[in-house]
Design a protein around this nucleic acid. Structure first.
Lengths: 339, 339
DNA sequence: TTGAAAGCGCTAACAA
DNA sequence: TTGTTAGCGCTTTCAA
């Protein structure tokens, strides 16, 4: 038997073992282990010492099963989205600070969001943080009837679902404003084409252009959330008359745009400025240096965790909408002097 | 109370509810729910119907706690590594096919691998699949004493740990062979600089060069696993005498190399060929089209799950080492006619 | 401050 | 084929 090298059936040490070895009852040992009050200092130290010696680790299944306060936060995210990963990392940090544990459930090509959420519910989570949820509103509402549900990055909400997000309108406006202040007039938007938050960003683009008296120059191209989409859309764009600047739906899309521009023999930002959205790791790569709107993943994550905590304490959550910030890097510059 | 809209304390329906409603014992209901044998056809249908009506979902904590056969596979992976995500997706698919459930635990900047594994152990997994593990051998061995541990992508093993991987030596050799057959002689390797599998790949590069009588041209540069590393290393490279080709440690590193080459005003593959490693989504992007060595994530994942299954059945695992395959795209071409 | 007893929701022997 | 009986390891009253 490879699991029991010595042939001895080494059971995992349980709380009962610790209690016995320390000469106390299981209940008391339990109190000590979870740091609850009701144990004398001497006992507490002794139990802790014994637990350490025996290499005791509480069994999370049993603990979760018994207590209604599991302090467990469920998170759904998409494996193929790097930015989701950044948010998840931040959620770990924020949750730990608030004394929560985190359990992950991935959404992928072969794993629909419904399955991801349900497995979390079965695991005994107290609240669900869903990153860019794609489920139908009535499904989301059904989940929200079981635990508090917080939707991140997406504006699509539902009955009982809290939405923690950055103000996409303000973000896009900041990008347009930045470009206009650099002298650009022909600012094109390559949209998210049905992706989460796409409509809100397009609307903000239109509004901002109008605000700056550039209604006549409004032009929205059908893009998408990935490199390929940006490449395709920008490919068509540069085949015609070159605009001054492109506001891309997100960073990945912007990367595709950059490539298309490059292929057309144009220089960024001399011939054309480009902005992204997310301020993801991608945008920060030294060879990319993409001007991008930061959603500030750490702050968003902290707000989401705080929102969950508030709901669990039957309080009204706050700080649900955050102000994004434009991070200017090297893909935007003064407008070219065109004919 | 937002969770109980009607004020009725709606408990989650349990197996007992289903049993009562169907007029059978809990044990029998359990048999039906998990598809075990020992229930009459009529009862089975009735129980199933009642369960559906009541919206019953088994509580995974209770189920896990009770049964020793949890059919639960734990997976550790790094959030910031896109290729890990690809492997995880494939593990989901493979595990499902083999009747396993999967629980994820991420490694991140603020979450060491040790914590990731321990939380899995506490969750009651039957085996751990660790993607590119970085723990010390004695730690890995300690984990392996508790459950079968399978290490993916990495060759670093430990007592009792199975390693499922592709033959990196063969992969690098295939890349070098491909380049040599295209007429390249000055083939430089930008290594992984201490990353998982880096040493094996460098060694294979040296061996392959030697094999082709190119010992004199062996040149290994200090690189790394990310874009920045490739960019830096290749930046230094192109500042000197330009080689014929570069074998990069992995795809992300290769991307950095491509950028450096581009900046130097050189064309790929006309002036210089570049190969990556992983055949990740990145390499397949239409604007990248990177020639890369495929680790075949789906096959690797299937092998890892099969390995876990074998260990759990006290059988010897097989198919631990896979033959990688070179995927030729557009970053490699005939050697330039140089002076 | 401590301990006894009950039970979270489920599965697995066993007996009927 | 069905039901009974015992727990899995832990937390949580309640009494001592």
């Amino acid at each position: 038997m490879r699991q029991q090298p010595e042939g001895t059936p080494t059971r995992r040490t349980t709380l009962a073992d610790v209690a016995a070895a320390a000469g106390v009852s299981r209940a008391l040992a339990s109190i000590v282990m979870r740091g609850a009050e009701g144990a004398g200092e001497a006992t507490r130290l002794r139990v802790l010492e014994v637990a350490r010696e025996l290499g005791y680790r509480p069994d999370s299944r049993a603990r979760l099963l018994r207590s209604s306060r599991t302090r467990l936060l469920g998170v759904t995210f998409t494996l193929s989205e790097p930015f989701h990963g950044e948010v998840v990392e931040s959620i770990y940090a924020a949750a730990e600070a608030d004394g929560f544990d985190v359990v992950l459930s991935a959404v992928g090509a072969r794993r629909p969001e419904s399955r991801a959420v349900e497995s979390l519910l079965d695991a005994g989570i107290e609240a669900a943080l869903m990153i860019a949820p794609s489920s139908a509103p009535d499904l989301l509402a059904a989940y929200a009837r079981q635990v508090p549900v917080i939707s991140l990055l997406s504006t699509t909400s539902a009955e009982g679902v809290d939405v923690v997000r950055s103000d996409d309108g303000a973000g896009v406006r900041a990008a347009v404003e930045h470009l206009v202040s650099l002298g650009h007039r022909n600012v094109v938007h390559i949209d998210g084409a049905g992706a989460v938050a796409a409509d809100e960003r397009s609307a903000a683009y239109r509004a901002a252009m109008q605000e700056y008296g550039l209604s006549a120059n409004i032009r929205v191209l059908h893009g998408g959330a990935h490199e390929e989409d940006g490449l395709r859309a920008a490919g068509e764009l540069v085949a015609g008359s070159i605009p001054d600047a492109v506001v891309a739906f997100n960073d990945r899309c912007a990367l595709g745009v950059l490539e298309a521009v490059r292929r057309a023999g144009l220089n960024v930002p001399e011939d054309l400025s480009v902005t992204g959205y997310d301020d993801s790791q991608l945008s920060r790569l030294s060879h990319v240096q993409l001007t991008s709107v930061s959603q500030d993943a750490p702050r968003l994550a902290a707000a989401a965790v705080a929102c969950a905590a508030a709901r669990l304490a039957s309080q009204e959550p706050k700080d649900l909408v955050h102000q994004p910030q434009l991070v200017v890097r090297e893909t935007t510059g003064p407008a070219p002097a065109r004919v």
